[in-house]
């Protein structure tokens, strides 16, 4: 514990990316994630990396496309409205099978909304905000330490499967500081024979998302993508089940809302109410089987989000009518109230 350092979520994200070998960052400022570009602007030159503040979010994601095509580990970050602007680029990256890490420190929406933390971009991240049959892996840390650890993992998943990985935090997680042990690099190596690394002595590589021939080119790509997504579902799904075994009731929440639920759980357990918490760590792939197991035999499942109920859809799809599901959410950067969660769960027993 004593070797820990106190760091903000946004800053540790930058440092963990550097530990993971990321040497390129392109972004455009937006609150509440400005400490990410600020940190990268300071640190990347020290490790011979390149920080570039682009003229827009759209420019930044296309610079990510370029660096990734050249085989580099690259990251961009933004917050909700800025992420909306990047969606075309994310779809192109997916179509060109280019790995990248895109961070979304979510804020209140829709539109420009406000700068407080929120979770209203779940649909956008898990359903695909851009066009076409693609998926982005979406990881949702709940602590500053987990931001560090999942950042390392994001780069590995992106390179391993040649996909875009979205790291989904929110304004509170990005701004808050906690004790953190900086992670070790994973040291996994990924060959990139497809990269535009200079064609001297070999046939040129082509990186593109335009594939005009439907049958030979585009459908073949889509089949490959779907096969990759199946592998990701099998290998990379992550979740945490906390005190679920003896529980009568189950809370389901991710990221910041899962921490609020954990406080409610402590209060309820103190009063003898048996409640557990299921926390998806990957939002896509959604931990369907793990949730089914955690929800087995529970009298009620309460989904809590900082949104009007988006993950709720995945909870319902996963449990497919086998559980009684309730929802409680706050939007606009408001936080779910611990007392309200406690009140609801107590009511289920009446």
């Amino acid at each position: 514990m004593s070797d820990k350092i106190l760091m903000k979520g946004n800053e540790v994200l930058g440092e963990a990316a550097i530990i993971a070998g990321c040497r390129y960052y392109f972004g455009y400022p937006i609150t509440p994630q400005n400490e990410v570009p600020a940190y990268m602007a300071r640190r990347l030159p020290q490790v011979d990396g390149t920080f570039l503040q682009a003229e827009s979010e759209i420019a930044a994601i296309n610079m990510v496309f370029g660096a990734s095509a050249a085989g580099a580990r690259v990251m961009t970050s933004s917050s909700s409205p800025g992420i909306s602007l990047k969606q075309e680029g994310i779809s192109y990256l997916s179509g060109a099978r280019l790995p990248a890490v895109v961070v979304n420190m979510m804020r209140g929406g829709p539109g420009l909304g406000n700068i407080a933390g929120a979770q209203g971009d779940y649909y956008q991240a898990t359903r695909g905000g851009g066009n076409g049959d693609y998926r982005t892996v979406a990881l949702a840390p709940a602590t500053v330490q987990e931001i560090a650890d999942l950042t390392i993992k994001s780069f590995d998943i992106a390179d391993k499967y040649r996909v875009v990985v979205m790291l989904m935090g929110d304004g509170f997680l990005g701004q808050m500081a906690e004790g953190v042990s900086l992670p070790e690099p994973s040291n996994q190596k990924f060959d990139k024979p497809w990269a535009l690394s200079g064609a001297e002595g070999r046939e040129p590589n082509i990186v593109a998302s335009l594939r005009l021939n439907p049958e030979d080119a585009l459908e073949k790509l889509n089949d490959e993508l779907q096969a990759t997504y199946t592998q990701i579902e099998e290998n990379e799904t992550m979740s945490e089940s906390y005190m679920t075994d003896d529980a009568d009731y189950l809370l389901v929440a991710y990221g910041m809302s899962s921490r609020i639920c954990r406080s409610a759980l402590r209060a309820l357990r103190k009063e003898g109410v048996k409640v557990g918490l299921f926390r998806p760590i990957t939002l896509w792939p959604f931990p369907e089987k793990e949730l089914q197991k955690a929800a087995e035999g529970k009298q009620k499942v309460l989904t809590v989000e900082m949104s009007a109920g988006q993950m709720l859809e995945d909870v319902k799809l996963s449990l497919n009518g086998t559980a009684d599901i309730d929802f409680y959410g706050r939007t606009a950067g408001m936080l779910p109230d611990i007392d309200e969660i406690v009140r609801r769960v107590k009511n289920y027993g009446k």
């Binding site: 514990m1 004593s2 700068i115 808050m176 906690e178 004790g179």
Partner: peptide, 21 residues
């Protein structure tokens, strides 16, 4: 921040959220 670091050095769990914006 100062209080958090001092507490952390004594093995306690700490968190710090600034008002921002």
């Amino acid at each position: 921040k100062l209080l958090c670091i001092a507490g952390m050095r004594e093995g306690k769990y700490v968190s710090h959220i600034p008002s921002y914006g």
